[in-house]
Design a protein around this nucleic acid. Structure first.
Length: 500
RNA sequence: GGCCACGUAGCCAAGUGGCAAGGCACGGGUCUGCAAAACCCAGAUCGCGGGUUCGAUUCCCGCCGUGGCCUCCA
């Protein structure tokens, strides 16, 4: 599989350090607030990567993936937010992490295998800082901070493709700054009164922002691993610093071109989500939370929205785009309907023709797209082509069950559920409103639950149609539509489903 | 100001040096009592101006526009 590698600037072949196994690290959230759809999109990209890598159908026969993603559960922002709301910082983190993990499940995201937190990894973080200091690439200050010595790392800037001089422009020393150089960044921050703090050789304090990822990735994936992912906005300075720290800990100052590879082979970055063409930001008040997105659109449409653009491109969330994504999900779902629901039944005689669906060909094209830098838009178009082939074959009374199984399987690799409307959807219906509706239309029904009321109304409509009282039949159908129930007539009867 | 992306039909979005995927919306048609679903058909000279080439949407240069990063951010 090929992936765009920010480090090399090229699309590189994934060659796992250990054959058959892939170590993946993705920068997780800083849980100072509830997650928004940007976080969801990011994780969804790596979720699809993980699903595809693990899929036995891929050319490698399925990798064993160790998926690691962290929580930076203590940092400036967490502390600041906690202070504003009078909460304990770690309690605030904990609460947001709990909510986010619940939402990840609702979104159909594969939970990372390892989910380390800064507060539980301080020991390994301190270990790494000491190594870096030991190699002369970091220094403590009189106040008890420890800074990375950027100027001593010859290849600093190699990920974001910038040089130190260029970066230096626009920076300056703050008054009272103990840094040797403006670009130096904190590995360890001396504690201020009232802040969460841990003991260290330099006094009480807490880890700086970037060091936790270097330390955790090394601890769980080893000194060298395969893929590191995150948002495009993390390239600089976060990921740049992660590399610098990891290499510095290994004693590499960037002057030896033959130094063994350390840290991630491939750096993968996903684009940002914008809302109506504007970056989501708290100050603009246009942030869409995961909670809100799940409520409005549900997991499959959100996923469809994310997958219709390439992961590196930014993705503009609009109501229209979400409506299109929702309709797309329904199209695929409809193609998976059992044939009994259709008016034409499979005809044993018809399926012998040479027009049978070439399912392996669709699978081959799907794989080709996924292998090529996770080209989900192309993979999806293969799925839509397959859906059309299924619908067409079904109209020709052919048996499409094998093709449907293929479609379901491939959609599953992308994490799409494509569930037929079920009791779960029925729960959304308002049983009281429905029975009032039945009463208004003089329809009596046996049960009081939503489903049996709907059934009774459909029966009444069928009776009206039989009497050629189409005015009444249409009145019933319109009333049901208003209640969120959509009807479809066919020779096999009337089927109904719930639409939001 | 510096670095880096992107600009393809009404909207979203792939892709390629040689007839421009797919989805949504809209229009026409088949089916249907009417719908819905499904199927068929129609719809773009790929931001603008140069250059390279037998030939460019695809490569190069310039311009315009949008976005990201350079400070916290998925």
């Amino acid at each position: 599989m090929r992936l765009t590698n920010t480090l090399t600037g090229e699309v590189d072949e994934l060659r796992p350090v250990q054959p058959g196994r892939v170590g993946l690290y993705v920068c997780g959230v800083t849980p100072y607030a509830a997650a928004h759809v940007g976080h969801a999109m990011s994780l969804m990209v790596y979720d699809v990567l993980v699903r595809y890598l693990r899929w036995p159908g891929n050319p490698a026969g399925g990798y064993q993936v160790l998926f690691t993603s962290n929580y930076t559960d203590v940092d400036d922002k967490v502390i600041e937010r906690a202070r504003e709301s009078g909460m304990d910082p770690l309690e605030l983190s904990e609460r947001n992490i709990q909510q986010w993990e619940q939402e990840q499940t609702l979104l159909g995201l594969t939970l990372p295998d390892v989910r380390p937190r800064v507060t539980q990894e301080v020991e390994s973080i301190l270990e790494m800082i000491q190594e870096i200091v030991g190699h002369g690439l970091a220094y403590p200050t009189p106040s008890g901070d420890v800074y990375f010595r950027v100027r001593s790392k010859a290849d600093y800037g190699k990920l974001s493709h910038r040089d130190i001089d260029q970066l230096r422009q626009g920076t300056r020393f703050e008054p009272g700054d103990e840094k040797e150089f403006p670009l130096d960044f904190a590995l360890w921050k001396a504690a201020k009164p009232g802040e969460p703090a841990w003991d260290s050789p330099w006094g009480k304090g807490r880890p700086g922002w970037h060091i936790e990822c270097s330390a955790m990735a090394r601890r769980y994936l080893g000194e060298r691993f395969d893929v590191h992912g995150g948002g495009l906005d993390l390239v600089f300075p976060h990921h740049e610093n992660e590399i610098a720290q990891a290499e510095a800990a290994a004693g590499q100052d960037g002057t030896d071109p033959d130094a063994p590879p350390v840290f991630a082979d491939i750096w993968m970055h996903n684009g940002m989500v914008t809302r109506d063409n504007t970056k989501m930001s708290k100050s603009l008040g246009n942030v869409v939370s995961v909670e809100e997105a799940l409520e409005r659109w549900g997991p499959d449409p959100i996923r469809m929205f994310v997958l219709t653009s390439h992961y590196r491109a930014s993705n503009n969330l609009t109501d229209e785009a979400m409506a299109a994504a929702t309709a797309g999900v329904e199209r695929l779902t409809t193609a998976l309907r059992p044939s009994e629901d259709w008016e034409s039944q499979p005809d044993a005689m018809a399926s012998t023709s040479d027009r049978e669906i070439d399912a392996p060909d669709y699978r081959r094209r799907f794989i080709e797209a996924m292998e090529d830098d996770l080209a989900t838009p192309r993979a999806l178009s293969v799925l839509f082509n397959l859906a059309r082939a299924i619908n067409r074959a079904r109209e020709a009374s052919q048996d499409v069950s094998a093709a449907q199984a293929e479609l379901r399987g491939l959609a599953g690799v992308l994490g799409l559920r494509l569930a037929q409307p079920t009791a779960e959807a029925e729960a959304l219906l308002d049983a009281v409103a429905l029975s009032r509706l039945a009463a208004d239309l003089s329809v009596s029904c046996g049960g009081t639950d939503a489903a049996s009321t709907v059934e009774a109304l459909i029966e009444a409509r069928q009776a009206a149609r039989a009497d050629r009282d189409f005015a009444r039949a249409d009145r019933i159908r319109d009333a049901l539509a208003e209640a969120g129930v959509v009807l479809e007539d066919s020779a096999a009867g009337t089927r109904w489903s719930v639409r939001r």
